[in-house]
Amino acid sequence: MNKIYSAAAVTITLLATGCASNSKTYDNAAGRNTIYEDVSSTSSTVAGIGVESQDVVSMTDQMMRDMLQNPMLVSNESARRIIIDSEYLVNESTSRINKNMLTDRLRINLNRAANGRMVFVGRHFSDMVNKERELKRSGVVDAGTIRTTQATAGADFRLGGRISSLDAMDTNTQLKSRYHQVTFEMVDLELGTIVWSGIYEFKKTAQDDIVYR
């Protein structure tokens, strides 16, 4: 009888051990943790030959520093009114990019660095401004606490530019290279003259299997 009990105990122990070991084969752990990376780093985990975060940061920083040294744009007499948006920034390259990323970062950093020496006209917010002005002048709301003006602000200069690229591919190694040329130019909105120009260029080579969205 004791042998029967002993055999039963061993069987139950083996079954329990088997269940425990089987349960360890199911991996219920969470997936790979999100990786935070430096947006200006050239050694990104995912990289291709298109325009990427480090390119956006580098080119807008370079353009900002150059603009701040231009006496036509930064005057000690009166703050120039400037429009920086993506309306006249044309993408003719084979790279897919949101142009607002370039102009927004450039405008915001310039606004902070200029410290009042430049005034930025938010022409991309004109619809919002016009609706509020209409409400004020119709008496639906009061005039606010700052001022009323006959017209909205006109600008002295506006940014334009072009993004171009040149592609090449080695059919033996399947390596692809892309040369980017990004130009920014500030245009006098009365004369049509170009008062400042900047160029940023870079070339990348890789087995390009990255999808840009």
Score class of each variant (00 low, 15 high):
Ala113Tyr: 03
Thr173Glu: 12
Lys136Asp: 08
Lys136Val: 13
Arg107Val: 03
Arg147Phe: 06
Leu110Val: 01
Gly198Arg: 01
Glu201Thr: 12
Lys131Glu: 15
Ser177Tyr: 02
Ile199Phe: 04
Arg117Glu: 07
Asn109Ser: 12
Ile163Ser: 00
Ser164Pro: 00
Val141Gln: 05
Val140Cys: 09
Arg107Trp: 07
Glu201Tyr: 07
Gly154Val: 13
Gln174Tyr: 03
Val121Glu: 00
Gln150Val: 12
Trp196Cys: 04
Asp208Glu: 12
Val182Ala: 07
Lys204Val: 06
Thr193Ile: 00
Gly198Leu: 00
Ser197Phe: 00
Phe125Leu: 15
Gly154Ala: 14
Thr149Leu: 11
Asp170Trp: 00
Gly161Trp: 05
Tyr179Lys: 08
Arg123Thr: 12
Glu134Asp: 15
Arg105His: 08
Tyr179Phe: 05
Ser165Phe: 04
Gly192Gln: 12
Leu191Ala: 12
Val129Ala: 15
Arg107Ile: 10
Ala113Cys: 06
Ala143Arg: 06
Leu135Val: 02
Val187Ala: 09
Lys136Phe: 03
Glu201Asp: 12
Arg105Met: 09
Met169Asn: 09
Leu106Phe: 08
Gly116His: 01
Phe120Tyr: 04
Phe120Met: 02
Ala114Asp: 07
Asp170Asn: 15
Lys204Gly: 01
Gly144Arg: 03
Gly122Thr: 10
Ala206Val: 02
Leu110Gln: 03
Asp209Val: 15
Ala113Met: 12
Glu185Tyr: 02
Ser126Gln: 15
Thr205Tyr: 10
Ile163Arg: 03
Ser138Asp: 14
Leu106Asp: 01
Ile108Ser: 13
Lys203His: 02
Asp167His: 07
Asp142Leu: 07
Leu166Lys: 14
His180Arg: 00
Tyr179Thr: 02
Thr173Asn: 11
Ser126Thr: 09
Ser138Arg: 12
Arg117Leu: 05
Arg107Leu: 13
Phe184Gln: 05
Asp104Arg: 06
Tyr200Ala: 10
Ser126Trp: 09
Thr145Arg: 10
Gln174Ser: 13
Asp208Gln: 11
Val141Trp: 02
Glu185Leu: 08
Lys136Gln: 15
Lys176Ala: 10
Val129Cys: 10
Val187Trp: 04
Thr173Phe: 10
Arg133Phe: 07
Asp127Cys: 01
Met118Cys: 05
Gly144Asn: 12
Ser138Val: 08
Tyr179Ile: 01
Ala151Phe: 08
Lys203Phe: 04
Thr205Ser: 15
Gly122Phe: 13
Glu190Leu: 06
Ser126Phe: 07
Ser197His: 08
Gln207Phe: 07
Arg112Asp: 13
Phe120Val: 01
Lys204Met: 02
Gln150Phe: 09
Ile163Val: 04
Thr171Glu: 14
Glu185His: 10
Ala114Leu: 03
Thr149Gln: 11
Asp208Tyr: 06
Thr173Arg: 11
Lys131Gly: 09
Gln150Cys: 11
Thr149Ser: 12
Ile108Arg: 15
Thr148Lys: 10
Ile146His: 09
Gly161Asp: 05
Phe125Met: 15
Thr149Cys: 04
Ser165Gln: 02
Asp167Pro: 03
Phe184Pro: 07
Gly161Tyr: 01
Ile108Tyr: 14
Asn111Tyr: 05
